[in-house]
Computed example of a mutant assay.
Amino acid sequence: MTTSGQGDSEGSRPPVALLGSIPADISTALRQQFELIDEDSLPALPDDRRKAITHGLTSAMGGVNHAMLEDLPGLDAIASVGAGMDRFDLPWLSARGIAVHPTPDVMTEDTAEFAVGLVFALLRNIVSNDGFVRRGAWSAGRAPLGYRISGRRIGIVGLGRIGSRIAGKLAALGCDIAYSGPSRKDGPWRFELDLAELARQADVLVLSCAGGEATRGIINAAVLERLGPQGYLVNVSRGSVVDEAALIEALERGTIAGAALDVFENEPVPNPLFLELPNCILQPHASVFTRENRRDLAAALEQILRS
């Protein structure tokens, strides 16, 4: 966390309580506009200054330090870096008159682009072909064949903001799109209520659903078996959505052809067994790591914190 000094607390920068972890670059950008007060600095503030703090800041991955809220009786709004809400106890916060403001719109385009990039990486062997050249295997023979993206059957789990953009981008590439979720959405794509059946019909299953207990482990051994030995899994949602033990076994046994994962149950140190799997592309929760995203994200958070 970023520790803020108290020297210009009476100046032009409004005070904001840091309630959970946020990315360092976002902290640096916002510190120019706001006085960011972390957990260690908060007790040293005079009572009147603590009571005057109305806004807090955290991230979808950082959640909220509930103990800090006891010292912030005037808090009524929390800005959150990210789209996820599964780490917030919303009823508990609402009972205290505190609203959480995530930043989902800023995350949509970059996450959708990244998901499409992972589909390309898997089906066109982009990552494995890099290794093929580097280890000198090209001189001994041709690289393995991949699959054309156009015409692939894509199953999307969760057709919200991000899922809809993934669907639109892959449909524009000539893919056949179907999706699963709690209910049917307006749009041109085919709805399949049963997740296992969606997996059976798909060449690639793309996960873009919300995290939390409602979706914990929904991609289990039975779903992976239905995806089949020529099917691929892409996850840009939450690591909790996947039964990782079942996924590792499926990748080891060839129950599915491969996976590309941007999220894990344990971050930033995922299960080490993933590191040994040649048919698994691993990414560091980087789907929104673009310069445009950081610019737009800082602007969106500033707007929330000044509201």
Rank of each mutant, 00 (worst) to 15 (best):
L123P: 00
L123M: 04
R124G: 05
R124W: 09
R124E: 12
N125K: 11
N125H: 15
I126E: 11
I126C: 14
V127G: 04
V127H: 02
N129P: 05
N129Y: 11
D130E: 14
D130L: 15
F132I: 05
R134W: 02
A137K: 11
A137I: 00
A137V: 04
W138N: 01
S139Y: 05
S139L: 06
S139N: 14
A140C: 01
A140R: 10
G141M: 00
G141T: 01
R142T: 12
Y147E: 12
Y147N: 10
Y147Q: 14
Y147D: 09
R148M: 10
I149C: 02
R153L: 06
I154K: 02
G155A: 02
G155S: 01
G155I: 00
I156Y: 02
V157A: 11
V157P: 06
L159N: 10
L159Y: 12
G160Y: 09
G160F: 11
G160W: 08
I162A: 08
I162L: 05
G163I: 12
S164W: 09
S164G: 14
S164P: 06
S164Q: 15
R165V: 14
R165H: 13
R165M: 15
I166L: 10
I166Q: 07
A167R: 06
A167L: 07
G168T: 08
G168N: 13
G168Q: 14
K169A: 14
L170E: 00
L170M: 01
A171Y: 05
A171G: 03
L173K: 07
L173Q: 12
L173Y: 09
G174A: 12
G174R: 14
C175S: 14
A178I: 06
A178V: 06
A178C: 08
A178M: 12
Y179C: 06
Y179A: 07
S180H: 12
S180T: 13
G181F: 03
G181W: 06
G181D: 02
P182M: 05
P182H: 06
S183A: 15
R184C: 07
K185N: 12
K185L: 07
K185P: 04
D186S: 15
D186E: 13
D186Y: 06
D186W: 03
G187T: 08
P188W: 07
P188H: 09
W189G: 07
F191W: 15
F191R: 10
F191P: 04
F191S: 06
E192C: 06
L193S: 13
L193Y: 11
D194H: 15
D194R: 15
A196S: 15
A196G: 15
E197V: 13
L198I: 08
A199V: 13
A199S: 10
A199T: 10
R200V: 06
Q201F: 13
A202Y: 09
A202W: 03
D203T: 12
D203H: 14
V204E: 00
V204T: 08
V204D: 01
V204M: 01
V204P: 01
L205Q: 09
L205T: 12
L205Y: 11
V206M: 13
V206Q: 04
L207F: 02
L207G: 01
L207T: 00
S208N: 05
S208K: 07
C209H: 03
C209P: 06
A210K: 03
A210G: 05
E213G: 05
E213C: 00
A214D: 11
